[in-house]
Design a protein around this nucleic acid. Structure first.
Length: 120
DNA sequence: CTAGTGACGTGCC
DNA sequence: GGGCACGCCACTA
């Protein structure tokens, strides 16, 4: 799988996450057939040019936290604001109730997902 | 080319 | 709960 292809798969996947729901880097990796490549999902999201229609803010780490980093140059705090605006409480450490908002796609969403991936 | 770093996850202590 | 090692691999120096 080449790099741009990987990015497009990530974006297709993330684009499926409904408003007010969350997913994790690892889940996104799994669902595009790249088990173990959570870190690369982070890089793909970093390559997005903001603003974008892709709901990148809905992807957090498996520990239920926003990945805070100076290297993100403020996009981490932007992520916090966007999630709060979607009704998800986030504390000042970036912690959030992941289990309550974790998204699991239904049958329809899975088939649409497969269709999007096939179209690449 | 090599080494270090990092929007990560799992396993183990 | 915290910390560390390792696997993953793009990117940078």
């Amino acid at each position: 799988m080449k790099g741009t292809d990987f990015d497009q798969r990530v974006y297709a996947m993330v684009g499926q996450i409904p408003h007010g729901y969350l997913s994790t880097y690892g889940q996104v990796a799994d669902r595009i057939g790249a088990y173990g490549c959570a870190r690369q999902v982070g890089w793909a999201l970093r390559r997005l040019s903001l603003p974008t229609l892709i709901p990148w803010q809905r992807v957090v780490n498996a520990q239920g936290r926003i990945s805070m980093s100076l290297s993100r140059e403020g996009t981490d705090w932007m992520q916090r604001d966007l999630l709060i605006a979607e009704g998800i409480p986030v504390d000042l450490e970036g912690r959030l109730p992941l289990k309550r908002f974790l998204w699991s796609p239904d049958e329809r969403q899975i088939s649409q997902m497969n269709q999007l991936l096939r179209a690449l």
